[in-house]
Simulated scan of single mutants.
Amino acid sequence: MHPSQNLKPEWVDIIRKAAPAAEQEGKLQPVQLALIYEQGWFKFLVPQVYSGLQLALPQMVRLEESLAWANGSLGWVVTLCSGAGWFGGFLDAALATEIMTDPRLCLAGSGASTGTATISGDGYIINGTWKYASGAHHATHITANCIIKNGDETVVNDDGEPLVLPFVFDGKDVRVFPAWKYVGMMATGSDAYEVKDLYVDKNRCFKIDPEYTVVNEPLYRYPFLQLAEATLAANLSGLAVHFLDLCGPAFDERMKNPRLTEPQKEYIKQLLAEQTTLLNKTRAAFYETVDNSWNSFELDGENGLQEVSLMSRKLAKVSRESVDKLYTYCGLSAANPDTEINQVWRDLHTAGLHSLLTFER
């Protein structure tokens, strides 16, 4: 199924028309955000009890691929910020009700453990700086991992390692500052943020572990690693499909070049057909793996999870390689940063550097 089949044409039109301005300003535009709020896309994984969509993994991954196909930056922000909504399954119920019922809910954050949380009475004093928080500029709340301290001493876990726990802060208590200076994903607003001497109640801390699930639903027992791998791979897939879509018009233009021989023209056409077939076969295998894992998870537990990890990496690899094989034949317009095809190429090669999908195994 082509990703376009999951989105109304008018949605795609809104997203893409605003894309150049979003890239120029380094963040999603109001018209794009209005659509996200209207459709509840930031609430893909928020529990239904807190007014979320609580989508099954297969449905969510397909929608995220479609949004990445519409625009890389928007798809990435929705994926990461809606992914943080999954934490709603582990948050204190009263706090989650307060936070997640907001119709403009957006949870940004970082997985890096570059902050400290010092025990203070019934709460913690937070200090730290984190970078690369996609969607930080319009986040209502921000999450962060902190090393737990008791005075000057670092608290250790059962393995003797520093204890690291996630926290959720109100957006107003966090200072966001410029840090994203990369060639792609320019509209994600993936800037840095810091917190200084912020006191938070203990209910702002949570544990991501099935043992500590507050909302007793399969979605919040499914491992976060495979959930993250699958959603990120779907973003690369969506970007790759978009690039291959744009190769058609680009190649048609190249065919007008009188210096191209007939065999060369035929080679370019055949290459696009081959890479389209390869990408679609890999996408189909990926979705079959995700579907099987989700459908059997409650019965078979760990069975199928390793396959999700492997297929996510394979899909990411095929997406990158298919685009690179075709890029050479797209002409100079593909190297012009003002063109759509170049934006897609830059977005894919920036998102494709994510550490979860770097290696095939």
Results as ranks from 00 to 15, higher is better:
His141Asp: 02
Asp152Arg: 04
Thr129Gln: 14
Glu161Pro: 08
Gly89Gln: 01
Ile125Trp: 02
Gly109Arg: 10
Gly88Gln: 04
Lys131Ala: 10
Asp152Glu: 10
Thr114Ile: 11
Leu53Gly: 04
Phe169Lys: 04
Asn127Gln: 10
Pro47Trp: 12
Ala108His: 03
Lys131Asn: 11
Phe167Val: 03
Met60Ala: 15
Ser113Val: 03
Cys81Pro: 15
Asp152His: 08
Ala139Cys: 10
Lys131Gly: 10
Glu98Ser: 03
Leu105Asn: 09
Thr154Val: 13
Thr154Asn: 09
Ile142Thr: 02
Thr97Trp: 13
Thr118Ser: 15
Asn150Asp: 15
Ile142Phe: 09
Gly75Glu: 00
Leu53Gln: 09
Gly111Trp: 08
Thr114His: 15
Gly83Asp: 01
Glu161Gln: 14
Thr140Asn: 07
Thr140Leu: 01
Gly151Ile: 14
Ser66Ile: 08
Trp76Cys: 07
Gly85Gln: 04
Leu55Ala: 07
Gly52Cys: 08
Gly75Lys: 09
Val156Met: 13
Thr116Phe: 14
Ala68Arg: 15
Leu163Pro: 08
Tyr50Leu: 14
Leu67Phe: 03
Gly89Tyr: 06
Leu80Ile: 15
Asp170Lys: 11
Val61Trp: 11
Gln48Leu: 14
Gly135Thr: 13
Gly115Trp: 14
Val78Ala: 04
Thr97Arg: 08
Phe90Ile: 01
Met100Trp: 01
Val155Thr: 05
Gly115Lys: 13
Leu163Asp: 09
Ser66His: 11
Thr114Asp: 11
Leu107Phe: 12
Leu67Asn: 08
Pro103Trp: 02
Lys172Gln: 08
Glu64Thr: 11
Cys106Ile: 03
Gly83Thr: 08
Lys131Pro: 07
Val77Gln: 12
Gly115Pro: 13
Asp92Pro: 11
Ala93Asn: 03
Tyr50Trp: 10
Thr129Asn: 12
Ala139Phe: 05
Ile148Lys: 05
Leu105Pro: 02
Asp159Trp: 01
Trp86Cys: 00
Lys172Gly: 04
Asp92Gly: 09
Gly111Ala: 09
Ala117Glu: 08
Asn150Gln: 13
Val46Ser: 09
Leu163Gly: 07
Asp159Gln: 02
Pro47Cys: 11
Pro58Arg: 15
Ser82Arg: 00
Asp102Ser: 11
Val78Met: 06
Phe87Tyr: 05
Phe90His: 12
Ala144Tyr: 05
Pro166Asp: 08
Ala70Gln: 04
Gly151Glu: 13
Ser113Tyr: 03
Gly123Cys: 06
His138Tyr: 14
Arg62Met: 07
Ala96Pro: 01
Asn127Phe: 02
Trp76His: 13
Gly89Asn: 02
Asn127Lys: 07
Ala96Ser: 07
Gly75Thr: 12
Ala96Leu: 09
Met100Ile: 00
Ile119His: 05
His137Tyr: 13
Asn71Tyr: 09
Pro103Ser: 03
Ser120Lys: 14
Ala144Trp: 02
Ile147Tyr: 01
Leu63Ser: 07
